[in-house]
Design a protein around this nucleic acid. Sequence first.
DNA 1: CGTCAGTCTGGAACCGTTTCCGGAATATTG
DNA 2: CAATATTCCGGAAACGGTTCCAGACTGACG
Lengths: 328, 328
Amino acid sequence: MTVTIKDVARLAGVSASSVCRALANPGGVRPDTREQVQRAVRELGYVPNRTARALSTGRTGNLGIVLPDLANPFFAGVVKAAQTRARALDHSVFLSDIDEDPAVETLLIRALLRQVDGFLLCSPRSSDEELRALHGKVPIVLLNRRLTPFPSVTLDAASGMTQALLHLHVLGHKRVAYVAGPRTSWANRERLRGLRSAAESRPIEVIEVGTAPPTVEGGAAMADVVLRTGVTAVLAFNDLTALGLLNRLRDRNFHVPEEISVIGFDGILLSSLVSPALTTIGVDMERIGQAGVDLLLETMADPAHPPAHRKLPTQLIVRSSTDVVRPH
Amino acid sequence: MTVTIKDVARLAGVSASSVCRALANPGGVRPDTREQVQRAVRELGYVPNRTARALSTGRTGNLGIVLPDLANPFFAGVVKAAQTRARALDHSVFLSDIDEDPAVETLLIRALLRQVDGFLLCSPRSSDEELRALHGKVPIVLLNRRLTPFPSVTLDAASGMTQALLHLHVLGHKRVAYVAGPRTSWANRERLRGLRSAAESRPIEVIEVGTAPPTVEGGAAMADVVLRTGVTAVLAFNDLTALGLLNRLRDRNFHVPEEISVIGFDGILLSSLVSPALTTIGVDMERIGQAGVDLLLETMADPAHPPAHRKLPTQLIVRSSTDVVRPH
DNA sequence: CGTCAGTCTGGAACCGTTTCCGGAATATTG
DNA sequence: CAATATTCCGGAAACGGTTCCAGACTGACG
């Protein structure tokens, strides 16, 4: 039924170990046996069984990617890039969508533990302790979260927020709201922190508004709260939230950007398609996914190596959802 | 380092085979040994090595999902649902994004062949022959493609197209364009067929317009071609394409829906957020992913069983991108 | 109490590959 | 040509489970 290394060995007239060597390091066998083996491999269409190899070597050639919500185009983009990169480096990818539920996160990880060589955790929602408990068991790279002793890929939220606030400042805004993301999100805290510190040196007041699931619905639900604060501009945790705001504001007959400016975060494709097109703090999802995989593979190659960190730039993309403050 | 079945066996004072039995079918061992084993398992935190199990049983507990483009929210939605369903049924998921490249599709499949118990192929781009060559090697369920002898989950495109055309008919449209998707897409052919057959019984002419990558850019690129045809309405292969059209038409100062009506396909969230909100033929992505996994698991359980087919309904969602024809 | 059926258990083989080890064959050197 | 160094190969063990098989034990029954 399925062709194994022994079939190849028999056909090539050599032993299984020679077949193995011929394939693993072709220099380790005589040219003629290598030729024999290769011919047999071709003839039988032999493909090594990676499961068996994994058992024997302890390396699976698989990566695990865990993320909060694949329906968020940001994560979809990151995963796509990561998967592509992983394949280029001859690795396959296990995908786990935890649906924003911190509880299943560590469970999922433990379930996949022995089936992967390492994990890429995208915006993990677990507590510091839970994550740390995993350290040493398996190589892990954190995306969108910084936590000793893990390597990580993060975004320069402070820079993005500074750019955004400068933009708003120039437009004359004095009071801005921040619609927060999940409490368990490190990126959320980081963005708020960046925003606050950017506001310190300017005559701008930042008002934090509740916490919303980082989705369109979540953003929509916060629109009324934002309006009640009387701010002239609002920054959202991410684009999805901003889009929800945009929509609900329109329903309320509030005009963006004339009456209120809106700024998102991520720069998903979608944000350029709505109208008014969303001003947002853009990031390079492709680079994030790619950097994550690269870092992970480095960590796997040398787990003892001190954890590396990559902080990727953010870039304010000014579109049509922000404008000067007008008296009314 | 890592705790194996032998460690459990030693601690429990039984043999490895008993541990195995105690875990696999608890009824097969005496209550007190079962208790011993369970205690040892808990104490050591033993988790069976699925790789080893796979080698021994031939079943991996993994599913492979292959799709053309994760950046398309339709596929992201389907994968999310499929992954969730798979986990509920105690299976993990390998993800492969082929980036719309038919060539890598079968390669990827073959690479994962022995690491999964079955494949869910979403809108596969390979030829009938290539796919058929895989039959018998591994259980496969096709999504968005019907091809003997595979089980499949498809959409009732004909119904959706009929609903759409009826809608346009009522609005007075006589000439409509169809912006095609990839040539290799079965769904594309099916949608066009459905559209044509729906048009037959009505005084409506359907003009097929080139083929575009099923993306926003692809749709945008086709806008001018559509305009040159002088149609009053255009149906796009999918929402992304429709969104691209919408955008480019706006750039050209063409008003939707006053001057031209636009209809999409899929009903991705995004389509409701743009303005004008897109009229589209909606599908239940969650159900698609779930049905796909269910079908696949049934097929895996009994490969000899005649292939099952699920044709899921489509539902026209009328929003603001369609309106009556106006003379000008 | 002996026999038998039935239950439970441990040992061993096996899944497909890798890797270590020792020996055979070949090449190198004096 | 003998002695030694080197290359190449096959056998066997190992990875961590599962499953078959045969034997030990239990209880029931005559």
